[in-house]
Design a protein around this nucleic acid. Structure first.
Length: 183
DNA sequence: ATACTGATGGCCT
DNA sequence: GGCCATCAGTATA
């Protein structure tokens, strides 16, 4: 499979964000293989972005955001949900793309099991839902998606011609930027 | 259809 | 102590 390599991720965050639409998220687990087509993303930048976890500099939690592009940043929020981000930019420059939604492609039966039997329409249409369906937790935080045998991204030749730009969801600051892309 | 709210815990000031 | 890059359920129309 044509796996995304380092140079794809080590670019400006907004470029990577746009190009992640239509790419495939793959999680290989003992339970089986999970695959989804990314169809909703959000860009989170560095110190100039008040919505970004990196806004106030490096902390214990946001450390993966400062790694070289291509790593995973998975954080725990609201006491019960995990959210998956794809780290962008070169090392020491924070930047990440939040995976807000995917279209289930493979491992749908297991995704439904992980999600308590929810129907296809609402199986993976939210950042917390994607992690729950794919079995992603703190365990995968910091993984290098370029070299990992467990978690990576693929280009399967899908072309995205049209997509919407909107403000990001669930934030208080930085709502002026249209950094949420939906295909 | 939209609007509101409780659940629940780690992180940061 | 306050604040969440959320979700599912309930209420209201």
């Amino acid at each position: 499979m044509p796996r995304l390599s380092r140079h794809f991720f080590v670019r400006p965050t907004l470029t990577v964000t746009r190009e992640l639409l239509g790419k495939y998220l793959v999680h290989q687990t003992r339970q089986g293989l999970f695959v989804g087509e990314i169809n909703e993303v959000e860009a989170y930048a560095n110190v100039d972005d008040p919505a970004s976890h990196a806004f106030r500099g490096r902390t214990l939690r946001n450390t993966p955001m400062f790694l070289e592009g291509g790593h995973a940043y998975i954080y725990f929020t609201y006491g019960m949900h995990y959210c998956l981000n794809i780290v962008t930019e070169q090392a020491d420059t924070a930047g990440a793309v939040l995976i807000r939604s995917v279209i289930p492609i493979e491992g749908i039966k297991m995704m439904q099991k992980n999600r308590g039997g929810k129907p296809l329409k609402i199986l993976t249409n939210g950042p917390g839902k994607v992690c729950q369906a794919f079995g992603l937790t703190k365990q995968q935080n910091g993984l290098d998606l370029v070299t990992s045998t467990e978690l990576w991204l693929e280009d399967r030749g899908k072309k995205i011609s049209r997509f919407q730009k909107t403000p990001r969801i669930g934030i208080r600051n930085g709502t002026n930027k249209l950094w949420r892309f939906v295909s």
